[in-house]
């Protein structure tokens, strides 16, 4: 604000002199899930035109099942990114938790509930370690989780001795997440429902509780949050712990989806989860975004991969398309963030 605006016509600032493009940017700014929603609808229409089989109910059901694991990881990732952090260890935490679940369930003859509880504990312990490194040792989240990514990956391999546990060797509860049941002729998988449940809980917690507001406030401006009386470290720690809980859920869904627990599958999913978050309109700078956007982002990636493969293109074109999507999404985010008044 300079004196020139102050001496100008006082009514001038109330007149909306923005161009249609700026106005559109304002709307996208206010509703972060809008742009991924538009992209998802458009891509479904386009891929539906390219191939008849794409819009078949069985194919759409398959897409949701393919998205379930990454989608759940991305829900945890969204929480972290909202606080202006990043978690490179989500895939590794999931793998470690799934190995613990599978080993306990198959080897010891313990009840499957105990196996799930152990997996949950592992997820929370990993989250607690990440949270400790970020809040107490003040490490940048990127570095902290880069370190724990390697640690968790190695521990998972050491613990499992590199061996895959097959689904048939585990009680049925462990692979229950992979089962499907018909709803109006569509095969719906339990894992997908669990993922949606996680999104629903997070959506309510983020938008309707004080904790949710504090997560946004911490990601927005840490110092402002502290001066408002928010315990920043406590919020951060709770975010990493909650992420650990969601990652344990992802581990269960992964066991069902793969009908096995393997120490080698899923470690690289951290980048896929970040991709979904970013395409979903959540800002890597924190404080901006909605959890539903991430679900849309994960679905967009799933639709692109499935659609391109149905179109008969090489798998490398899927990777290429996802890469372009990320760059476009972040550029769009940068442009949208320029809105000021």
């Amino acid at each position: 604000m300079t004196t020139t605006t102050a001496t100008a016509d006082p009514a001038a600032e109330f007149l909306d002199r923005r161009s249609p493009l700026e106005r559109a940017r304002g709307v996208l700014h206010r509703y972060p899930a809008l742009s991924p929603a538009i992209v998802l609808v458009l891509s479904v229409i386009v891929f539906g035109q390219l191939n008849d089989r794409f819009l078949a109910l069985s194919n759409l059901s398959l897409i949701t099942q393919q998205v379930a694991v990454v989608g759940t990881l991305a829900a945890a990732q969204t929480l972290i990114i909202l606080t202006a952090g990043i978690d490179l260890s989500v895939g590794a935490v999931m793998v470690l938790a799934s190995m613990v679940m599978a080993q306990v369930a198959s080897g010891s003859g313990a009840p499957p509930v105990l196996a799930l509880a152990f997996g949950l504990l592992v997820g929370m312990a990993c989250g607690a370690l990440n949270g400790f490194l970020v809040t107490r040792l003040k490490l940048p989240p990127f570095i902290a989780t880069l370190g724990t990514f390697n640690v968790f990956t190695a521990v998972a391999l050491l613990y499992s001795r590199g061996a895959t546990v097959r689904g048939g060797d585990m009680p049925a509860v462990m692979t229950w997440t992979g089962t499907t049941f018909p709803v109006f002729g569509v095969r719906v998988s339990t894992g997908v429902l669990l993922m949606l449940g996680a999104y629903l809980v997070l959506a309510v917690a983020l938008s309707r509780t004080a904790w949710g507001k504090h997560v946004y406030a911490v990601g927005d401006d840490k110092d402002a949050a502290r001066l408002s009386g928010i315990s920043v470290n406590r919020v951060l720690l709770s975010v990493y712990l909650s992420a650990g809980v969601i990652l344990a859920l992802a581990a269960w869904i992964q066991i069902g989806r793969a009908n096995a627990a393997s120490p080698n599958v899923g470690v690289d999913m951290n980048l896929d989860s970040i991709t979904a978050v970013v395409i979903g309109g959540t800002s890597l700078f924190g404080g901006r975004g909605v959890i539903w956007g991430t679900l849309l982002g994960a679905l967009i990636v799933g639709v692109f991969r499935n659609g391109l493969s149905l179109a008969g293109l090489d798998v490398l074109y899927q990777t290429l398309a996802v890469g372009v999507l990320v760059i476009v999404a972040v550029s769009l985010d940068q442009w949208i963030r320029k809105v000021r008044k």
Binding site: H214, A217, D221, A225
Partner: peptide, 24 residues
């Protein structure tokens, strides 16, 4: 009220007014 405004830019006005003492 600090010189560096302790407001959270992406939260709305009402949320900012009640930040840190939300009403349940």
């Amino acid at each position: 009220v600090y010189q560096t405004l302790a407001v959270s830019p992406s939260l709305d006005i009402a949320s900012n007014l009640f930040l840190g003492r939300e009403v349940r």
